[in-house]
Design a protein around this nucleic acid. Structure first.
Length: 501
RNA sequence: CGCGGGGUGGAGCAGCCCGGUAGCUCGCCAGGCUCAUAACCUGGAGGUCAUAGGUUCAAAUCCUGUCCCCGCAACCA
């Protein structure tokens, strides 16, 4: 693997409370970051908040707050959620921070000096009630009142200038936009002539933003304001050595809804700035929330985040990573969550720990036994376990997170099968040495499984490693220390009992 | 003919790029085991791989037509 890994999430807009979409992208980034950390890479995981703009200003006014006070009030809600979800990000950028604003202005100035900025009249449908321009599609939907054609002087970024260069770039860098079908979608989009991008708003109408350095009457609008965070934080314009170390980003995770923004607006901005493009922009799918069957009485929609309170962050993280094939949409239902929890986590993983630790406690005085000469069956387990880290690293490198989780769980199943075939509870009566060896093998397999699952379930796997006294060990065979005392523990994942319907 | 993705046993998916025993998880049925969170292990039933043609010794896999579902379609964070 590389020596460094920079992963970003979008910065989230603070006009609303965090939801499953925010949580999923952030968990995914966290899982990738943690996998890279255990592979030995130096990791920079960046996320944050987008705090400027019309909607934030309106939301603040509604509450009688200043925009800044409103943001300061909402930011902790995101931070609290990330804490609950065990997110281990390395920085958290808020676009109202001085360190960011300075760099946005610097970037605007550079693009201006490069001749990629010009003034023009922007004409579009303007909603007086919403105080913003609405799209043609929105206009046609007829859902907006007080709509009128409005002409306004604004600054434009010459995005069109870079159209051909971008097409060439996408075609010559197959892993730039992923998954593949999204790349084709963008190339299709680029077959039409690209327009230029309106990047300003007059302060007279909207003043909650970063002032344009070459025109005090304007603030910049979303694109430069928000997207520039990806380079302002790693040190663009402020710390060249640091920036050189981290940029380009290894992967920028986004939802498929903002693919155009990132693969076209953002990248042409980077062209203009003379900054290299990220190695990969990965657009994941959406979680479709199914209605619960029980909604008959309540008519409620399950909020997956509520499950965190009930079953813990690990179980939810596991489900989200295990269930979605990266890039495709997936369905979230309580039913499938419970099934996945019970079969994979309670029955297979948690129960394996119980079998192993229970037998060691019962027949071996709670002390991890010696291994000795491995049998054929044990060597199979050993080889499988030793191969796991490499296998998973490869899958993660190609963003096959689901496959990676499946391959780890496959070892869990193998271990359960191994236990069944070797039956150390029987061996304890007939061949004590063999029983010891078998349990060492099982415990050692469990240790490696836990390390490999730790990026997905940092809490519970830590418990397992604590039980085995192996917290700082590596996923290679033989690091479990015989002679150490097992710690006792409650069931890792208590089964969720469901009433039959 | 705007662009693109997809239709695989009851459910959810993989396989399709590089044709050649249809794989996985859940569910169901039978058995085993009894260390364990009524868990675990083994075996089984169940599929015209949307549909109609074509290419081929051979197609879920390549080509064409048809039906159906879903994204994107520019200021949206």
């Amino acid at each position: 693997m590389d020596l460094k890994f920079l992963v970003t999430t979008p910065i989230y807009y603070v006009n609303d409370a965090p939801h499953i979409g925010h949580a999923y992208t952030t968990i995914l980034a966290d899982v990738l970051a943690r996998f890279h950390r255990i592979a030995g890479d130096e990791v920079f995981f960046l996320t944050g908040l987008d705090e400027h703009g019309q909607k934030v200003k309106q939301a603040a006014e509604k509450r009688g707050f200043s925009p800044q006070a409103h943001c300061d009030d909402l930011a902790p809600r995101f931070l609290n959620l990330w804490q609950k979800l065990e997110i281990l990000n390395d920085d958290f950028i808020r676009t109202t921070e001085e360190r960011h604003k300075k760099i946005v202005q610097l970037a605007l100035q550079k693009v201006y000096e490069a001749g990629d900025m010009y003034v023009s009249e922007y004409e579009g449908w303007y909603s007086v009630a919403e105080e913003r321009f609405i799209t043609e599609t929105e206009y046609e939907s007829g859902q907006f009142r007080d709509v009128k054609k409005l002409k306004e002087k604004n600054y434009f970024f010459k995005m069109s200038k870079y159209q051909q260069r971008l097409i060439d770039y996408i075609e010559s860098h197959p892993s730039f936009i992923r998954p593949e079908h999204r790349k084709n979608e963008m190339l299709g989009f680029l077959r039409q002539p690209l327009g230029d991008l309106c990047i300003s708003r007059p302060k007279s109408r909207m003043d909650w933003g970063i002032e344009i350095p070459f025109d005090k009457d304007y603030v910049t609008y979303v694109w430069f304001d928000a997207l520039v965070n990806y380079i302002s934080v790693p040190g663009y314009g402020s710390d060249e050595a640091r920036f050189k170390k981290w940029w380009p980003a290894d992967v920028q995770l986004i939802g498929k809804d903002i693919l155009t923004t990132h693969s076209i607006y953002w990248t042409t901005m980077l062209f203009s700035l003379g900054v290299p493009l990220p190695k990969t922009i990965f657009a994941h799918g959406w979680w479709l929330i199914g209605q619960t069957k029980m909604s008959k009485s309540l008519g409620n929609v399950v909020n997956p985040l509520d499950l965190v309170e009930q079953y813990g962050a690990d179980a939810v993280r596991y489900y989200l990573m295990r269930e979605m094939v990266l890039g495709l949409d997936a369905n979230f239902t309580t039913d499938s969550f419970i099934k996945s929890y019970n079969s994979d986590l309670a029955n297979d993983f948690g129960n394996l720990l119980n079998r192993v630790s229970g037998l060691i406690a019962k027949n071996h005085a709670g002390i991890i036994p010696e291994s000795g000469e491995l049998t054929l069956a044990e060597n199979e387990i050993k080889d499988k376990a030793n191969a796991l880290a490499g296998q998973v690293t490869e899958l993660i490198a190609s963003y096959q997170v689901q496959e990676a989780v499946v391959s780890i769980m496959d070892l869990v199943r193998s271990l359960n099968k191994f236990m069944e075939l070797q039956a150390p509870w029987k061996l304890a009566k007939t061949d004590f040495k063999a029983a010891e060896r078998v349990l060492y093998t099982a415990a050692e397999g469990l240790r490696i499984v836990s390390i490999m699952l730790s990026p997905v379930m940092p809490n519970k796997t830590k418990t397992v490693l604590e039980v085995l006294n192996a917290v700082d060990t590596k996923p290679q065979w033989g690091q479990l220390r015989p002679g150490t005392v097992l710690r006792t523990h409650p069931p890792l994942f208590p089964r969720i009992e469901v009433e039959k319907s």
